[in-house]
Amino acid sequence: MTRTANTSAAVRQQRHEAPDSLDDFPTPPWATRALCEELAREGFDLAAMDAWEPCCNRGYMAEPLRESFRSVFATDVKDYGYAGQNGVADFLIDWAQDAPKVDFVVMNPPFKLGLEFIQHALKHARVGVAAFVRSAFVEGGARYGALFRDRPEALVLPFVERVVLWRGVLLDPEVPVWRVKKDGQGALEKPTSATAYSWLVWIKPPMWNGRSEHRRIAPCRQRLTRPGDYPPLPQHLRAQEAREDQGKLEWV
């Protein structure tokens, strides 16, 4: 596996989507490093393993994975300009012989397609699958019947501190951004989130003992944040560049 562009027939297949239909919520790098620490704690030698990141977006998850895994195959249904992307392709296609041989599939899947992405990932991963999802993903009869009842997670890893995601941009949660509120008044504020996130990890037999473990990820954002993780604050989110349409900034 290399970081050069893959031009196979499977990778060239694309699902064309309207820009506003994509779940464009980049994952903060520290949240991926937290997963890698948990996997290492379970005894996995990630430096000897290969991973597939099928929702690579702008690379904010793939790059931290490359710090721990031997190699990372990065794809996405859209080209976001990430230099390390191996191909533009829909993960849910029939990859056949073009599928990379990987130990783990690690991803932040589209919320509405989370079930399908996890099921598909379990077909390709030799060892396991890790999905970054809203903690409420574990609820619901449909997902229980289609996935959790017969293939429960090996690890349920909720974050103690909130992982804040923004649509279309990765922002440093320590840097205030300018927002226009409903009353028309603007102010600088650090965004917060009412949404809780977890890593769900499936380990395939024979490495899995059949039991599920629930373990919280202790506060670690500051410890696992590295210089250069966050791009510069976009001009339109700075106070001096405030405009009427800045209230459209969305975080979840």
Rank of each mutant, 00 (worst) to 15 (best):
Ala9Thr: 09
Asp98Thr: 05
Pro64Leu: 02
Ala31Trp: 01
Ala96Val: 05
Ala218Asp: 08
Asp50Ser: 15
Ala121Glu: 02
Trp95Asn: 08
Asn86Ser: 06
Tyr60Ile: 01
Phe148Ile: 12
Gly59Tyr: 00
Ala10Gly: 13
Met49Asn: 08
Ala121Thr: 07
Thr32Lys: 01
Val252Gly: 15
Gln14Asn: 11
Met207Phe: 08
Arg221Asn: 06
Arg58Trp: 00
Gly59Pro: 02
Val133Ala: 11
Val77Tyr: 09
Asp98Ile: 04
Gln119Asp: 07
Val88Trp: 01
Lys123Val: 10
Asn6Asp: 15
Val160Cys: 11
Val164Ser: 03
Gly59His: 04
Trp178Phe: 10
Arg41Lys: 14
Asp20Leu: 14
Met107Asn: 01
Asn108Cys: 03
Leu155Asn: 07
Glu161Ala: 11
Val105Cys: 10
Arg179Trp: 05
Leu165Phe: 11
Pro234Cys: 08
Tyr80Arg: 06
Arg223Gly: 05
Met61Gln: 11
Glu189Leu: 14
Met207Asp: 13
Val127Ala: 07
Phe91Val: 00
Gln14Asp: 06
Glu17His: 11
Arg221Gln: 08
Leu22Pro: 09
Glu250Phe: 12
Arg216Lys: 15
Tyr197His: 14
Ala146Trp: 00
Gln97Gly: 07
Val201Tyr: 00
Ala154Gln: 11
Val138Gln: 10
Lys112Gln: 14
Ser193Trp: 03
Arg58Met: 07
Ala142His: 10
Pro232Phe: 05
Ala121Gln: 03
Lys190Ser: 06
Glu42Arg: 15
Gln222Tyr: 09
Gly84Ser: 05
Asp229Ala: 00
Val102Trp: 04
